[in-house]
């Protein structure tokens, strides 16, 4: 992992961070899990309802981007799915065994996401596999639209490219989003931050053709 993410890495390497008061208790984590598991759920899994209740208890809203890194930490395979193993491993690594400590850690995750570009990129790329329907290679356009807004709006919303991109996709593309497009759009929106008029964009460069088509669309609008 690059240096920039070392602050996050420290979670894994050093479970007893200063905020943790004493060694983390795996049993305590398990009992938090059981506290939210619904009686009708399988023994080692949260149903959607259980996940919602748990997020609610953490004070995590569904429109809060932090739910993505949290899902990643807890080894969630798709939206709303959390297993006991993922839950305990995740919290053990972060070093939190009670709801208040978990809230504290959640705060730290939020901050890492805001300040650490490399970490954000890692979460962003991970999100594609997590958000897409199981067995499908691509992300349906409407959910891609939602996730892009959630992940990128606050970071890259300023120059209007995000909204225009979504408008372009819904007007012209009208198909689901392949992984390469998802990944490369991050690179694109990052470079558009430095070059909002896209004057330096090279159609012969390595971006996928869908982004070329977007740039063409954008330039036609601007004329």
């Amino acid at each position: 992992m690059p240096m920039a993410s070392s602050s996050f890495n420290s979670y894994y390497q050093n479970p007893s961070t200063p905020s943790a008061s004493g060694p983390t208790n795996q049993n305590a984590i398990n009992s938090v899990f059981d506290q939210f598991r619904q009686p009708s759920d399988p023994l080692d899994e949260f149903s959607i309802d259980a996940t919602m209740a748990y997020f609610d208890a953490l004070g995590l809203q569904l429109d809060d981007v932090t739910l993505v890194p949290l899902s990643k930490v807890l080894g969630s395979e798709s939206m709303g799915e959390i297993s006991r193993k993922g839950f305990t491993d995740g919290w053990m690594q972060l070093g939190a065994d009670s709801l208040p400590k978990m809230q504290e850690k959640l705060q730290e995750l939020r901050q890492s996401l805001d300040t650490n570009e490399e970490y954000f990129k890692e979460v962003y790329k991970w999100a594609f596999g997590w958000a897409k329907p199981a067995g499908s290679k691509a992300l349906p356009l409407d959910s891609a639209t939602e996730w892009w807004r959630l992940l990128l709006q606050s970071r890259f919303g300023d120059n209007g490219h995000l909204e225009r991109w979504l408008e372009f996709l819904n007007e012209k593309w009208k198909k689901s989003i392949p992984k390469d497009t998802w990944n490369m759009f991050y690179e694109f929106i990052l470079s558009a931050k430095a070059d909002p008029t896209l004057t330096g964009y090279d159609e012969n460069g390595s971006y996928p053709s869908i982004i070329d088509a977007y740039v063409d669309y954008y330039r036609n609008l601007e004329q």
Binding site: K137, D180, P208
Partner: peptide, 13 residues
Amino acid sequence: VPDIKKCIDILLE
């Protein structure tokens, strides 16, 4: 070039 890029897209997919 755009046609080549489209083929690259397909091969990535």
